[in-house]
Design a protein around this nucleic acid. Structure first.
Lengths: 288, 288
DNA sequence: GCCGATTTGGAATATCTATTCCATCAACGG
DNA sequence: CCGTTGATGGAATAGATATTCCAAATCGGC
């Protein structure tokens, strides 16, 4: 009831608490335990389904070292730590996995089975989105759009849902935005002025209107950021940055889950950056 | 070394193969093994992170019975079966969980961190969508829409992305569809004719225009199907069926992942049903 | 209601996994 | 350069966990 001094010695109660503590220990750990920390950070998902032997081998240390590592984190041993991961894993999917697999079996005739298939596809799309996201490209896209005067959005057919949602978000954040829904490009071209930027969304099969607007805009030296579902899309040439969001199909259909997620992230990030810029400006302290 | 006749005795190579085999064995299993099968079907997600003792206790049988069950499925024992589940788990998220947690730590300043948070939220939204889906309601919604002459879609602001995507899909499947984007309701009301149906989407805070159009349409005796993010939404009264898709927010923002998934499922199911109906009609064999 | 076949429960065992221990090694301060 | 402290590797041990075995129970056909 007394001995224990600060906090070091009680075990983390959740995975994110554990990660915090890992950061806290930082570089104070001896070499081998440091290797364990590194490996853990990069392979959290393995803990629930692996043995100390597996993990220590992965980290390139002896099992005993890994054991000491667990204790350094505040656990009594590996088993206690693993229990944490297993518990968290169980919680995340209470009866979900169950229903999903039952429903999927029911086939894609039944509406609920269909929904299950689409949900499953959504999970996969998100996984692949996050695995494939190139950090620099996303950052570059944000900077281009944040630096623009007005942001112009174009996307037709299935891409229209994306730009319409993006337009809604940007507008809510008071970012000057125009959605180009037209095929008659008469007004579009002139509305896009130097200092602006164009965000073009197009999926296979690509709409000519979108491609052409993007091409003409790029020719005029106005930056174009593109979002597509494949890297060899015709927008590649016009775009300064081409973002990719692949979706997993269900039969001939798909939900634009990954694209929507990426577009929303972009919009929110751009909104945040512009707000910062404004704040700084109005302080008068710095000009961008 | 020959006895083994057909196929019964080689182990399944994937979880879905295993589920197939489970269905195959069907009711031929003795009582205790039947219990195991039931329990397994409802708790597949537990296999990777549990022991035979846990699982057999859950199923209400002796460990030895569970053991025999594994063997009946074609595995050499429990460990071999568990290995399958663990392998599949590892594959699904290769370095995904890793990145996600790293990125999320980076906070929601950084665009990539934001994307990670939204992706995580998307997973959760899909989980809760599937857990909360009431089978009858979805089926009823499909039937109402499939029976309609023209399907009218309405949804403004953030809901517009949903209806625009739905409109695209329905149109692709040659289902007569109209998207009402107007606030001036002059034409809308008359365009919606007896025999048609209205699909209304609205999230908090609700747009008056959508609510009013739904109310007026319902008053005229035309069926209204609604999609919202909460059960006590004003559409509840006008709608014959109210579908709910809750999203997990990131700060003040959200991606309409669950709603988009539900709407797409609905559209595809309706498209399928109408096609069936047409086929049957043209065969002349049955009239709906 | 008896007999053979099948299923069941529970304890015994084999295997695998976590954990500890200690001799050796490297780092650091005097 | 030596002695102390802390880290390391590897083997020994303790503890779980899976797996097998067999006696008892149950079921089905006659």
């Amino acid at each position: 009831m007394d001995g224990s001094p600060s906090d070091q010695d009680q075990a983390p109660a959740s995975v994110s608490e554990l990660l915090d503590r890992l950061d806290g220990l930082g570089a104070t750990l001896p070499k081998r335990l440091g290797q364990c920390a590194d490996y853990l950070r990069h392979n959290i998902h393995l803990v629930a389904v692996s043995t100390v032997a597996d993990l220590s081998a992965g980290a390139g240390v002896q099992p005993s070292a890994f054991m000491r590592f667990c204790q350094a984190l505040g656990f009594s041993g590996f088993s206690e730590m693993q229990a944490l991961f297993r518990a968290e894993y169980r919680e995340l999917r209470p009866d979900y996995a169950e229903r999903l697999s039952q429903l999927r079996e029911r086939g894609e005739e039944d509406p609920e089975g269909l929904a299950a298939s689409f949900a499953e596809a959504g999970h996969k799309s998100l996984v692949s989105l996050m695995n494939g996201l190139a950090s620099e490209k996303l950052g570059a896209a944000c900077r281009l759009l944040a630096a623009a005067g007005t942001i112009h959005l174009v996307g037709l057919r299935r891409a229209f849902a994306i730009v319409s949602y993006m337009g809604y978000m940007l507008d809510k954040m008071e970012v000057p935005t125009v959605i180009h829904r037209t095929s008659g490009q008469i007004e579009s071209d002139h509305a896009i002025r130097p200092g602006d930027a164009l965000f073009a969304v197009s999926f296979t099969p690509f709409s000519q209107e979108t491609l052409q607007l993007a091409a003409r805009t790029a020719e005029r030296g106005i930056p174009v950021v593109a979002l597509s579902d494949t890297a060899d899309c015709p927008l590649r040439e016009a775009a300064k940055v081409l973002l990719i969001a692949r979706e997993v199909d269900v039969g001939a259909f798909r939900v634009p889950t990954a694209a929507m997620t990426l577009a929303t992230s972009l919009a929110v990030a751009v909104g945040g950056m512009r707000k910062d810029r404004l704040t700084i400006r109005s302080n008068g302290s710095k000009m961008e």
